[in-house]
Design a protein around this nucleic acid. Structure first.
Length: 128
RNA sequence: CAAGUAAAUCGCCUUAUCGCUCAAAUUUUAAUUUGGGAGGAAAGUCCGAACACCGUAGUGCAAUAUAGUGGUUAACGGCCACCAGUCGUGAGGCUAGGACAAGUGCAACAGAAAGUAUGUACAGGUAAUGCUGUAGUGAAACCAGGUAAACUCUAUAUGGUGCAAUGCUAUGUAAACCAGCGCCCAUUUGGUAAAGGCUGCACGCUUGAUGCUGGAGGGUAAGCAGCUAAAGUGUAUUGGUAACAGUGCACUCAGAUAAAUGAUAAGGGCUUUUUGUUUUUUAUGGAUUUUUUUAUAAAAAAUAAGACGUACAGAAUUCGGCUUAUAGAUUUGCUUGACCA
RNA sequence: GGCUCCAUAGUUCAAGGGAUAGAACAAAAGUUUCCUAAACUUUAGAUCCAAGUUCGAAUCUUGGUGGAGUCA
Protein backbone atom coordinates (compact mmCIF):
# COMPACT_ATOMS: atom_id res chain seq x y z
CA UNK A 1 0.00 0.00 0.00
CA UNK A 2 1.81 3.13 -1.17
CA UNK A 3 1.64 6.44 0.62
CA UNK A 4 -0.74 8.09 -1.82
CA UNK A 5 -4.08 9.81 -1.55
CA UNK A 6 -5.58 9.96 -5.02
CA UNK A 7 -9.06 10.60 -6.29
CA UNK A 8 -10.11 6.97 -5.78
CA UNK A 9 -9.32 7.05 -2.11
CA UNK A 10 -11.45 10.10 -1.46
CA UNK A 11 -14.90 9.76 -0.08
CA UNK A 12 -17.04 11.58 -2.60
CA UNK A 13 -20.46 9.97 -2.87
CA UNK A 14 -23.12 11.97 -1.11
CA UNK A 15 -25.12 8.78 -0.60
CA UNK A 16 -22.24 7.09 1.20
CA UNK A 17 -21.59 10.11 3.36
CA UNK A 18 -25.23 10.23 4.40
CA UNK A 19 -25.12 6.55 5.26
CA UNK A 20 -21.90 7.06 7.17
CA UNK A 21 -23.33 9.80 9.33
CA UNK A 22 -26.50 7.85 9.95
CA UNK A 23 -25.16 4.36 10.68
CA UNK A 24 -21.46 4.78 11.31
CA UNK A 25 -19.55 4.43 14.56
CA UNK A 26 -17.03 6.90 15.86
CA UNK A 27 -13.91 7.24 17.96
CA UNK A 28 -12.45 10.57 18.98
CA UNK A 29 -9.09 11.90 20.08
CA UNK A 30 -9.15 15.65 20.54
CA UNK A 31 -9.20 17.57 18.24
CA UNK A 32 -10.31 14.83 15.84
CA UNK A 33 -13.37 12.67 15.55
CA UNK A 34 -13.28 9.67 13.22
CA UNK A 35 -16.46 8.19 11.85
CA UNK A 36 -16.24 4.84 10.17
CA UNK A 37 -18.49 2.31 8.46
CA UNK A 38 -17.52 -0.96 6.87
CA UNK A 39 -18.77 -1.04 3.28
CA UNK A 40 -17.62 -2.88 0.13
CA UNK A 41 -16.28 -0.84 -2.78
CA UNK A 42 -16.54 -1.79 -6.44
CA UNK A 43 -13.16 -0.44 -7.51
CA UNK A 44 -11.11 -2.50 -5.10
CA UNK A 45 -9.98 0.27 -2.74
CA UNK A 46 -9.66 -0.71 0.90
CA UNK A 47 -10.48 2.68 2.41
CA UNK A 48 -12.16 5.85 1.27
CA UNK A 49 -11.58 8.86 3.46
CA UNK A 50 -12.90 12.38 3.63
CA UNK A 51 -12.00 15.27 5.87
CA UNK A 52 -14.17 18.06 7.18
CA UNK A 53 -13.73 21.32 9.05
CA UNK A 54 -16.61 23.23 10.53
CA UNK A 55 -17.45 26.60 9.06
CA UNK A 56 -18.61 27.66 12.51
CA UNK A 57 -15.11 27.87 13.94
CA UNK A 58 -13.23 28.98 10.82
CA UNK A 59 -14.86 31.71 8.83
CA UNK A 60 -12.23 32.03 6.13
CA UNK A 61 -11.88 29.51 3.34
CA UNK A 62 -8.11 29.84 3.52
CA UNK A 63 -8.00 28.53 7.09
CA UNK A 64 -10.36 25.67 6.36
CA UNK A 65 -8.38 24.62 3.30
CA UNK A 66 -5.13 24.78 5.27
CA UNK A 67 -6.43 22.49 8.02
CA UNK A 68 -7.92 20.06 5.53
CA UNK A 69 -4.62 19.88 3.67
CA UNK A 70 -2.74 19.19 6.89
CA UNK A 71 -5.19 16.44 7.78
CA UNK A 72 -4.94 14.82 4.36
CA UNK A 73 -1.18 14.94 4.53
CA UNK A 74 -1.11 13.35 7.97
CA UNK A 75 -3.50 10.64 6.78
CA UNK A 76 -1.44 9.99 3.66
CA UNK A 77 1.83 9.60 5.51
CA UNK A 78 0.52 7.39 8.31
CA UNK A 79 -2.17 5.19 6.84
CA UNK A 80 0.32 2.46 5.86
CA UNK A 81 1.14 1.88 9.52
CA UNK A 82 -2.40 0.77 10.31
CA UNK A 83 -4.12 -0.43 7.14
CA UNK A 84 -1.64 -2.81 5.57
CA UNK A 85 -3.23 -5.88 7.07
CA UNK A 86 -6.92 -5.11 7.43
CA UNK A 87 -9.33 -7.43 5.67
CA UNK A 88 -12.58 -5.44 5.39
CA UNK A 89 -12.93 -2.12 3.58
CA UNK A 90 -14.06 1.02 5.35
CA UNK A 91 -15.40 4.48 4.66
CA UNK A 92 -13.94 7.15 6.93
CA UNK A 93 -14.77 10.74 7.69
CA UNK A 94 -12.40 12.72 9.88
CA UNK A 95 -13.84 15.81 11.52
CA UNK A 96 -11.78 18.59 13.03
CA UNK A 97 -13.36 19.68 16.31
CA UNK A 98 -10.78 22.19 17.54
CA UNK A 99 -11.02 25.93 17.47
CA UNK A 100 -7.38 26.94 16.88
CA UNK A 101 -5.21 26.64 13.83
CA UNK A 102 -2.94 23.60 14.38
CA UNK A 103 0.64 22.89 13.31
CA UNK A 104 1.63 19.83 11.32
CA UNK A 105 3.56 17.93 14.06
CA UNK A 106 0.57 18.29 16.36
CA UNK A 107 -1.82 17.05 13.69
CA UNK A 108 0.43 14.11 12.92
CA UNK A 109 0.85 12.89 16.51
CA UNK A 110 -2.86 13.19 17.25
CA UNK A 111 -3.72 11.44 13.98
CA UNK A 112 -1.51 8.50 14.97
CA UNK A 113 -3.24 8.28 18.32
CA UNK A 114 -6.60 8.40 16.60
CA UNK A 115 -5.89 5.50 14.29
CA UNK A 116 -4.31 3.50 17.11
CA UNK A 117 -7.54 3.88 19.03
CA UNK A 118 -9.52 2.96 15.92
CA UNK A 119 -7.63 -0.31 15.32
CA UNK A 120 -8.06 -1.24 19.00
CA UNK A 121 -11.82 -0.79 18.84
CA UNK A 122 -11.96 -2.77 15.59
CA UNK A 123 -10.17 -5.76 17.11
CA UNK A 124 -12.36 -5.59 20.23
CA UNK A 125 -15.58 -5.79 18.22
CA UNK A 126 -14.15 -8.71 16.28
CA UNK A 127 -13.30 -10.61 19.43
CA UNK A 128 -16.75 -10.04 20.82
C1' C B 1 15.83 67.01 4.90
C1' A B 2 10.81 66.70 7.04
C1' A B 3 5.58 66.56 6.39
C1' G B 4 1.88 65.87 2.81
C1' U B 5 -0.67 64.84 -1.88
C1' A B 6 -1.77 62.21 -6.62
C1' A B 7 -0.70 58.15 -9.82
C1' A B 8 1.61 53.50 -10.88
C1' U B 9 4.09 48.81 -9.59
C1' C B 10 5.52 44.59 -6.49
C1' G B 11 3.53 41.88 -2.61
C1' C B 12 8.85 36.67 -0.42
C1' C B 13 12.77 33.50 -3.06
C1' U B 14 15.94 28.86 -3.88
C1' U B 15 17.07 23.56 -3.37
C1' A B 16 15.89 18.45 -1.93
C1' U B 17 12.33 14.46 -0.59
C1' C B 18 7.17 12.81 -0.42
C1' G B 19 2.41 13.89 -2.62
C1' C B 20 -2.45 16.28 -5.45
C1' U B 21 -4.83 17.67 -10.19
C1' C B 22 -5.52 18.60 -15.70
C1' A B 23 -3.81 17.81 -20.81
C1' A B 24 -0.88 15.14 -24.41
C1' A B 25 2.02 10.89 -25.77
C1' U B 26 3.48 5.76 -24.89
C1' U B 27 2.63 1.06 -23.49
C1' U B 28 -1.75 -0.87 -22.06
C1' U B 29 -6.16 -0.49 -18.44
C1' A B 30 -2.91 1.42 -14.36
C1' A B 31 1.33 2.99 -14.64
C1' U B 32 5.54 5.94 -17.03
C1' U B 33 7.32 10.41 -19.42
C1' U B 34 6.68 15.55 -20.80
C1' G B 35 4.12 20.15 -20.08
C1' G B 36 0.59 23.36 -17.24
C1' G B 37 -1.67 24.48 -12.28
C1' A B 38 -4.94 30.89 -7.69
C1' G B 39 -5.57 36.80 -6.92
C1' G B 40 -4.94 42.10 -6.81
C1' A B 41 -8.57 41.76 -4.72
C1' A B 42 -9.98 35.00 -6.78
C1' A B 43 -13.93 38.34 -1.52
C1' G B 44 -18.76 41.29 -1.22
C1' U B 45 -22.59 39.96 -5.07
C1' C B 46 -23.47 46.36 -5.57
C1' C B 47 -24.06 47.79 -11.06
C1' G B 48 -23.47 46.52 -16.46
C1' A B 49 -23.09 42.80 -20.33
C1' A B 50 -22.16 37.92 -22.88
C1' C B 51 -24.56 33.16 -22.97
C1' A B 52 -28.91 29.87 -22.03
C1' C B 53 -34.01 28.84 -21.25
C1' C B 54 -39.13 30.76 -20.60
C1' G B 55 -42.47 34.45 -22.57
C1' U B 56 -43.84 37.84 -26.51
C1' A B 57 -51.06 40.27 -31.51
C1' G B 58 -52.33 45.01 -29.16
C1' U B 59 -53.62 49.38 -25.88
C1' G B 60 -53.44 51.83 -21.29
C1' C B 61 -51.79 52.27 -16.22
C1' A B 62 -48.38 51.16 -12.76
C1' A B 63 -43.33 49.77 -10.86
C1' U B 64 -37.98 50.41 -10.72
C1' A B 65 -33.46 52.96 -11.81
C1' U B 66 -30.57 57.25 -13.28
C1' A B 67 -30.10 62.90 -12.99
C1' G B 68 -24.79 69.68 -14.39
C1' U B 69 -22.65 69.67 -19.84
C1' G B 70 -19.91 66.93 -23.42
C1' G B 71 -17.28 62.51 -24.56
C1' U B 72 -15.98 57.12 -24.06
C1' U B 73 -17.76 51.98 -24.45
C1' A B 74 -20.58 45.72 -26.22
C1' A B 75 -22.94 48.02 -21.95
C1' C B 76 -23.11 50.66 -17.29
C1' G B 77 -25.27 53.75 -11.84
C1' G B 78 -18.30 52.89 -14.36
C1' C B 79 -14.37 56.01 -16.54
C1' C B 80 -12.37 60.83 -18.80
C1' A B 81 -12.63 66.21 -19.67
C1' C B 82 -14.88 70.79 -18.49
C1' C B 83 -18.39 74.03 -15.55
C1' A B 84 -20.53 75.08 -10.67
C1' G B 85 -20.54 74.40 -5.31
C1' U B 86 -17.75 73.09 -1.02
C1' C B 87 -13.23 71.67 2.28
C1' G B 88 -7.84 72.54 2.51
C1' U B 89 -2.06 77.54 3.32
C1' G B 90 -1.25 74.47 -1.05
C1' A B 91 -0.54 70.15 -4.34
C1' G B 92 -5.38 68.35 -4.32
C1' G B 93 -10.03 66.01 -2.06
C1' C B 94 -15.46 65.58 -2.02
C1' U B 95 -20.52 66.46 -4.36
C1' A B 96 -27.80 61.35 -5.27
C1' G B 97 -25.20 68.69 -8.91
C1' G B 98 -32.77 68.71 -12.91
C1' A B 99 -37.55 71.21 -11.04
C1' C B 100 -40.79 73.89 -4.81
C1' A B 101 -42.40 80.20 -11.51
C1' A B 102 -48.16 72.90 -11.80
C1' G B 103 -50.44 70.50 -7.51
C1' U B 104 -50.42 67.97 -2.48
C1' G B 105 -47.99 67.41 2.14
C1' C B 106 -44.41 68.57 6.33
C1' A B 107 -41.90 71.97 9.99
C1' A B 108 -41.34 69.13 17.36
C1' C B 109 -39.67 72.90 21.02
C1' A B 110 -39.20 78.09 21.08
C1' G B 111 -41.73 82.33 19.13
C1' A B 112 -46.86 87.47 18.47
C1' A B 113 -46.61 84.83 13.95
C1' A B 114 -44.05 78.79 10.31
C1' G B 115 -50.00 80.78 6.77
C1' U B 116 -56.42 81.77 7.14
C1' A B 117 -50.70 85.42 8.50
C1' U B 118 -49.67 88.46 12.73
C1' G B 119 -48.18 92.16 16.05
C1' U B 120 -44.28 92.73 21.58
C1' A B 121 -40.27 96.49 22.69
C1' C B 122 -37.23 100.53 20.76
C1' A B 123 -36.27 104.05 16.83
C1' G B 124 -37.94 106.66 12.44
C1' G B 125 -42.13 108.47 9.72
C1' U B 126 -47.46 109.93 8.71
C1' A B 127 -53.38 113.62 8.65
C1' A B 128 -53.95 108.40 10.37
C1' U B 129 -52.64 103.08 10.23
C1' G B 130 -47.51 97.32 11.05
C1' C B 131 -46.30 102.39 7.22
C1' U B 132 -40.59 101.42 7.60
C1' G B 133 -36.13 99.60 10.17
C1' U B 134 -33.82 97.08 14.33
C1' A B 135 -34.13 93.66 18.50
C1' G B 136 -35.98 89.00 20.45
C1' U B 137 -37.40 83.06 19.04
C1' G B 138 -35.80 79.55 15.68
C1' A B 139 -32.59 75.41 11.07
C1' A B 140 -35.73 78.83 8.44
C1' A B 141 -39.41 85.01 9.56
C1' C B 142 -41.34 91.88 8.25
C1' C B 143 -42.91 88.83 2.76
C1' A B 144 -42.66 85.62 1.26
C1' G B 145 -39.49 81.64 1.83
C1' G B 146 -37.49 76.24 3.22
C1' U B 147 -38.02 70.98 2.24
C1' A B 148 -38.11 66.44 -3.64
C1' A B 149 -32.08 60.45 0.10
C1' A B 150 -41.43 63.99 1.15
C1' C B 151 -45.30 62.48 -2.48
C1' U B 152 -44.79 64.49 -7.13
C1' C B 153 -43.33 66.77 -12.06
C1' U B 154 -39.70 66.67 -16.24
C1' A B 155 -36.15 63.85 -19.28
C1' U B 156 -34.03 59.05 -20.38
C1' A B 157 -33.90 53.69 -19.87
C1' U B 158 -35.97 48.82 -18.53
C1' G B 159 -39.79 41.57 -20.34
C1' G B 160 -38.63 37.39 -16.55
C1' U B 161 -35.23 33.77 -14.57
C1' G B 162 -30.13 32.52 -13.68
C1' C B 163 -24.74 27.61 -15.42
C1' A B 164 -28.10 24.28 -9.05
C1' A B 165 -29.71 28.13 -16.35
C1' U B 166 -30.18 24.43 -20.15
C1' G B 167 -29.56 19.67 -23.17
C1' C B 168 -28.44 14.32 -23.25
C1' U B 169 -27.62 9.43 -20.81
C1' A B 170 -28.57 6.27 -16.51
C1' U B 171 -31.92 4.83 -12.30
C1' G B 172 -37.03 4.88 -10.67
C1' U B 173 -42.07 5.78 -11.98
C1' A B 174 -47.86 7.27 -11.66
C1' A B 175 -52.49 9.34 -17.30
C1' A B 176 -52.03 6.17 -9.80
C1' C B 177 -54.48 7.99 -4.51
C1' C B 178 -57.44 11.70 -1.32
C1' A B 179 -60.25 16.50 -1.00
C1' G B 180 -62.64 20.75 -3.44
C1' C B 181 -64.69 23.04 -8.02
C1' G B 182 -66.46 21.52 -12.74
C1' C B 183 -67.86 18.23 -17.09
C1' C B 184 -71.59 14.23 -17.70
C1' C B 185 -77.52 12.76 -16.37
C1' A B 186 -82.69 15.20 -14.89
C1' U B 187 -85.22 20.41 -14.41
C1' U B 188 -83.99 25.44 -16.23
C1' U B 189 -80.60 26.74 -19.90
C1' G B 190 -77.78 25.84 -24.94
C1' G B 191 -74.17 30.36 -23.49
C1' U B 192 -72.27 35.40 -21.81
C1' A B 193 -69.85 27.82 -18.77
C1' A B 194 -65.75 26.31 -13.97
C1' A B 195 -60.83 27.24 -14.50
C1' G B 196 -56.33 28.58 -16.99
C1' G B 197 -52.71 31.52 -20.45
C1' C B 198 -50.82 36.42 -22.31
C1' U B 199 -44.44 36.15 -16.08
C1' G B 200 -46.75 43.48 -12.11
C1' C B 201 -52.26 45.08 -13.06
C1' A B 202 -56.63 46.30 -16.15
C1' C B 203 -59.00 46.24 -20.83
C1' G B 204 -59.00 43.10 -24.65
C1' C B 205 -57.65 38.52 -26.95
C1' U B 206 -57.32 33.37 -26.41
C1' U B 207 -57.42 27.89 -24.70
C1' G B 208 -61.18 25.11 -22.74
C1' A B 209 -63.22 18.50 -20.61
C1' U B 210 -58.48 12.05 -20.45
C1' G B 211 -60.14 19.58 -17.07
C1' C B 212 -58.27 22.88 -12.97
C1' U B 213 -56.60 23.73 -7.80
C1' G B 214 -54.78 21.86 -3.26
C1' G B 215 -53.04 17.71 -0.17
C1' A B 216 -50.27 13.49 0.68
C1' G B 217 -46.60 10.60 -1.57
C1' G B 218 -42.63 8.01 -5.10
C1' G B 219 -37.66 8.24 -7.72
C1' U B 220 -32.75 10.31 -8.60
C1' A B 221 -29.26 13.50 -6.42
C1' A B 222 -24.64 9.53 -10.61
C1' G B 223 -22.08 10.65 -15.50
C1' C B 224 -21.30 13.73 -20.01
C1' A B 225 -21.91 18.37 -22.49
C1' G B 226 -22.39 23.63 -21.06
C1' C B 227 -16.41 24.50 -19.43
C1' U B 228 -12.62 27.50 -20.70
C1' A B 229 -9.06 31.19 -27.36
C1' A B 230 -11.38 35.45 -25.32
C1' A B 231 -15.10 42.73 -25.92
C1' G B 232 -7.74 37.72 -24.29
C1' U B 233 -2.40 39.02 -22.60
C1' G B 234 2.30 41.51 -23.61
C1' U B 235 4.86 45.00 -26.55
C1' A B 236 5.72 48.86 -30.30
C1' U B 237 3.46 52.69 -32.84
C1' U B 238 -0.51 56.26 -34.71
C1' G B 239 -4.85 59.49 -33.43
C1' G B 240 -7.03 61.97 -29.14
C1' U B 241 -6.00 67.05 -23.49
C1' A B 242 -7.87 62.30 -21.49
C1' A B 243 -11.01 58.01 -20.81
C1' C B 244 -10.33 55.27 -25.14
C1' A B 245 -9.78 53.66 -30.24
C1' G B 246 -6.93 51.82 -34.68
C1' U B 247 -2.68 49.06 -36.73
C1' G B 248 1.81 45.76 -36.60
C1' C B 249 4.47 41.80 -34.05
C1' A B 250 4.71 37.93 -30.37
C1' C B 251 2.20 34.52 -26.96
C1' U B 252 -1.61 30.57 -25.31
C1' C B 253 -1.93 31.36 -19.70
C1' A B 254 -6.13 26.82 -13.90
C1' G B 255 -10.51 23.93 -14.76
C1' A B 256 -11.51 21.22 -9.33
C1' U B 257 -16.71 19.08 -7.87
C1' A B 258 -16.79 16.67 0.44
C1' A B 259 -14.04 20.41 -4.31
C1' A B 260 -6.62 19.97 -6.95
C1' U B 261 -2.55 23.96 -6.76
C1' G B 262 0.15 20.98 -0.80
C1' A B 263 3.55 18.95 3.37
C1' U B 264 8.41 18.47 5.56
C1' A B 265 13.65 19.86 5.93
C1' A B 266 17.70 23.20 4.90
C1' G B 267 19.41 27.90 3.25
C1' G B 268 18.71 33.00 1.84
C1' G B 269 16.01 37.90 1.33
C1' C B 270 13.14 42.09 3.60
C1' U B 271 11.18 44.94 8.03
C1' U B 272 11.46 46.21 13.25
C1' U B 273 14.31 45.78 17.54
C1' U B 274 18.35 44.36 21.29
C1' U B 275 23.54 43.74 22.31
C1' G B 276 28.79 44.10 20.96
C1' U B 277 32.83 46.33 17.89
C1' U B 278 34.78 50.22 14.66
C1' U B 279 34.54 55.13 12.40
C1' U B 280 32.70 60.20 12.05
C1' U B 281 30.27 64.59 14.07
C1' U B 282 28.49 67.56 18.16
C1' A B 283 28.23 68.99 23.44
C1' U B 284 30.41 69.04 28.44
C1' G B 285 34.50 68.26 31.78
C1' G B 286 39.81 67.06 33.17
C1' A B 287 45.41 67.30 32.13
C1' U B 288 48.52 70.88 29.45
C1' U B 289 51.62 77.59 28.11
C1' U B 290 50.07 75.87 23.33
C1' U B 291 50.04 71.90 19.87
C1' U B 292 47.80 67.71 21.62
C1' U B 293 45.69 63.77 24.52
C1' U B 294 41.73 61.59 27.27
C1' A B 295 36.68 60.60 29.90
C1' U B 296 31.33 60.88 29.63
C1' A B 297 26.76 61.68 26.87
C1' A B 298 23.96 62.06 22.27
C1' A B 299 23.32 61.29 16.96
C1' A B 300 24.60 58.96 12.28
C1' A B 301 26.97 55.13 9.30
C1' A B 302 29.30 50.28 8.64
C1' U B 303 29.72 45.37 10.44
C1' A B 304 28.79 40.72 13.60
C1' A B 305 25.39 37.87 16.58
C1' G B 306 20.43 37.06 18.54
C1' A B 307 14.96 37.73 18.79
C1' C B 308 10.15 38.95 16.76
C1' G B 309 7.43 39.66 12.33
C1' U B 310 6.93 38.37 6.82
C1' A B 311 -0.20 41.06 5.37
C1' C B 312 -5.26 40.52 3.26
C1' A B 313 -6.80 36.35 1.54
C1' G B 314 -8.28 30.54 -2.07
C1' A B 315 -10.77 30.16 -8.58
C1' A B 316 -16.35 27.36 -9.14
C1' U B 317 -20.00 29.80 -16.45
C1' U B 318 -17.14 34.05 -18.40
C1' C B 319 -15.96 39.20 -18.97
C1' G B 320 -16.10 45.19 -17.89
C1' G B 321 -16.42 48.15 -13.54
C1' C B 322 -17.45 49.56 -8.35
C1' U B 323 -16.94 48.60 -3.07
C1' U B 324 -14.48 46.49 1.03
C1' A B 325 -9.69 43.93 3.40
C1' U B 326 -4.31 44.34 3.02
C1' A B 327 2.43 43.49 6.92
C1' G B 328 5.63 45.88 4.08
C1' A B 329 8.63 47.69 -0.21
C1' U B 330 9.68 50.62 -4.74
C1' U B 331 9.17 54.52 -8.60
C1' U B 332 7.44 59.20 -10.64
C1' G B 333 4.94 64.12 -10.66
C1' C B 334 3.51 68.04 -7.51
C1' U B 335 2.77 71.09 -2.77
C1' U B 336 4.12 73.27 2.01
C1' G B 337 7.95 74.18 5.65
C1' A B 338 13.21 74.38 7.33
C1' C B 339 18.48 74.82 6.21
C1' C B 340 22.79 75.71 2.85
C1' A B 341 24.94 78.02 -1.65
C1' G C 1 -22.33 28.90 -6.81
C1' G C 2 -26.92 31.92 -7.65
C1' C C 3 -31.26 34.31 -5.54
C1' U C 4 -34.39 36.33 -1.42
C1' C C 5 -35.16 38.21 3.45
C1' C C 6 -34.13 39.87 8.55
C1' A C 7 -31.47 42.68 12.71
C1' U C 8 -34.86 47.57 18.79
C1' A C 9 -33.92 45.88 26.83
C1' G C 10 -31.97 38.99 28.87
C1' U C 11 -36.71 37.19 25.62
C1' U C 12 -41.28 38.37 22.57
C1' C C 13 -42.94 42.55 20.16
C1' A C 14 -44.37 48.38 19.55
C1' A C 15 -43.02 53.29 17.92
C1' G C 16 -46.37 58.98 11.17
C1' G C 17 -38.52 62.23 10.43
C1' G C 18 -39.54 65.82 16.49
C1' A C 19 -35.56 62.48 21.96
C1' U C 20 -37.19 61.02 28.56
C1' A C 21 -37.30 55.23 22.52
C1' G C 22 -42.81 52.20 24.92
C1' A C 23 -45.38 47.40 26.67
C1' A C 24 -45.40 42.38 28.52
C1' C C 25 -42.55 38.49 30.62
C1' A C 26 -37.74 37.77 32.94
C1' A C 27 -33.83 40.08 36.53
C1' A C 28 -32.48 42.96 41.15
C1' A C 29 -34.02 45.52 45.78
C1' G C 30 -37.92 46.44 49.27
C1' U C 31 -43.09 45.71 51.75
C1' U C 32 -46.11 41.55 53.39
C1' U C 33 -45.21 36.20 55.69
C1' C C 34 -42.64 31.80 60.75
C1' C C 35 -40.62 30.56 55.45
C1' U C 36 -41.96 30.27 50.22
C1' A C 37 -45.41 31.44 46.38
C1' A C 38 -48.86 35.13 44.94
C1' A C 39 -49.78 40.42 45.42
C1' C C 40 -47.93 45.52 45.81
C1' U C 41 -43.85 49.41 45.36
C1' U C 42 -39.29 50.75 43.18
C1' U C 43 -34.78 50.14 40.17
C1' A C 44 -31.43 48.90 36.19
C1' G C 45 -31.25 47.56 31.19
C1' A C 46 -31.70 48.45 24.20
C1' U C 47 -32.08 50.96 18.29
C1' C C 48 -25.90 45.48 14.76
C1' C C 49 -21.44 48.96 12.97
C1' A C 50 -19.66 53.26 9.97
C1' A C 51 -20.56 57.32 6.72
C1' G C 52 -24.16 60.64 4.20
C1' U C 53 -29.06 63.63 3.41
C1' U C 54 -31.68 66.80 7.04
C1' C C 55 -32.25 72.14 11.73
C1' G C 56 -33.15 67.11 13.70
C1' A C 57 -32.48 59.81 11.79
C1' A C 58 -34.50 53.75 15.40
C1' U C 59 -37.12 55.58 10.86
C1' C C 60 -34.55 57.92 4.46
C1' U C 61 -29.83 56.58 1.35
C1' U C 62 -25.01 54.07 0.75
C1' G C 63 -21.19 50.69 2.41
C1' G C 64 -19.89 46.88 5.92
C1' U C 65 -21.01 42.88 9.92
C1' G C 66 -23.92 38.90 11.62
C1' G C 67 -28.06 35.52 10.98
C1' A C 68 -31.99 32.85 8.33
C1' G C 69 -34.48 30.79 4.05
C1' U C 70 -34.62 28.88 -0.92
C1' C C 71 -32.96 26.66 -5.87
C1' A C 72 -30.57 20.72 -9.33
Amino acid sequence: MPATYSKKEKLKSKKLIDALFENGQSVSVFPFRLMYLSTPFEDGVMAKTGVSVSKRHFKNAVDRNRIKRLMREAYRLNKTLYFNNISTSYAFMILYMGKDKPTFPYVETRMKLLFGKFSNSISETKNN
